[in-house]
């Protein structure tokens, strides 16, 4: 059984994000980039399913420019058996990514797409759901626990009211939430081996996918800086201040 894991290259979570002066986006030149942390969790889950013998092949897929190869190398070091680089230098909107992943999913005859629930750059939280819709297959998002048995997957989801357990028929899309697992430390020999594995290159055109232009970024602005605090003298003052702000 094949699983596809989508991996996105994003600004590293430790980096302090800076907005470009013209408001057209955030600065990425010379900034440390890494695999989206939710995608690391998705990779880890796929590797664990493979170690348990539930799946036999893990295909890591990324969409983007030449440097995205680094992200695929990380996926290979995790234990992906194959890596596909959909080369595209332009902006990749969620719908574009979903169309491309759906095309790869069909082409590879995969049974599972395991994806991060969202990427930490645009926090769109759309791609996994869109892939399921495009392929008309089941979806179980925000997974906190995954079990695959034969042609079914049991997924415990983290929802507002608590935990919800779903059973889905395969093929299906599963998106990983933060607490699904703790990704392993990649070992140096695995990092070294991953550098030598060939990566399959393709393009959106090869996959018969047209880029979507459904979303237009109007302006990017930094969050407001924290305003100065107020010192209160007594607990009563504190309660009054909280009430004034509608917080108590």
């Amino acid at each position: 059984m094949k699983a596809i894991v989508s991996v996105k290259r994003v600004v590293d979570y430790n980096v302090r994000i800076q907005v470009k002066p013209d408001g057209s986006g955030v600065v990425t030149d010379g900034v440390k980039m890494s695999m989206n942390p939710f995608d690391e969790i998705a990779m880890e889950e796929a590797v664990r399913l493979k170690e348990k013998g539930k799946i036999t092949e893990i295909i890591a897929v990324t969409i983007g420019g030449a440097k995205n190869e680094e992200t695929l190398r990380t996926a290979l070091a995790f234990g992906a058996t194959k890596a596909i680089h959909i080369k595209d230098e332009g902006e990749v909107q969620p719908l574009t990514a979903a169309r491309a992943l759906a095309a790869v999913f069909k082409k590879e005859g995969a049974s599972l797409l395991i994806a991060g629930k969202q990427a930490i750059d645009d926090d769109a939280n759309q791609t996994g759901q869109m892939v399921a819709a495009l392929l008309d297959i089941a979806q179980a998002t925000f997974a906190g626990k995954v079990d695959v048995d034969g042609n079914k997957a049991t997924v415990v989801r983290e929802v507002d009211a608590g935990l919800e357990t779903l059973e889905v028929d395969l093929p299906a899309v599963i998106t990983a939430d933060l607490r699904l697992n703790e990704p392993r430390y990649l070992k140096l020999p695995d990092i070294m081996k991953a550098k030598r594995i060939p990566i399959e290159a393709t393009t959106l055109a090869d996959l018969g996918v047209t880029a979507a232009a459904a979303v237009k970024t109007v302006k990017t602005v930094p969050p407001p800086s924290r305003s100065k605090g107020v010192m209160v003298k007594t607990v009563d003052d504190l309660v009054a201040a909280l009430k004034a702000k509608g917080l108590a």
Binding site: T74, A77, Y185, K187, L188, I191, K195
Partner: peptide, 25 residues
Amino acid sequence: MPVSAASPFYNQEHEDFRAQVRRFV
């Protein structure tokens, strides 16, 4: 293995390894 621009002694593998150790620490 291409070296990093900052040093002739350290390449991408050293940096990938560094990222894992940093996370461990």
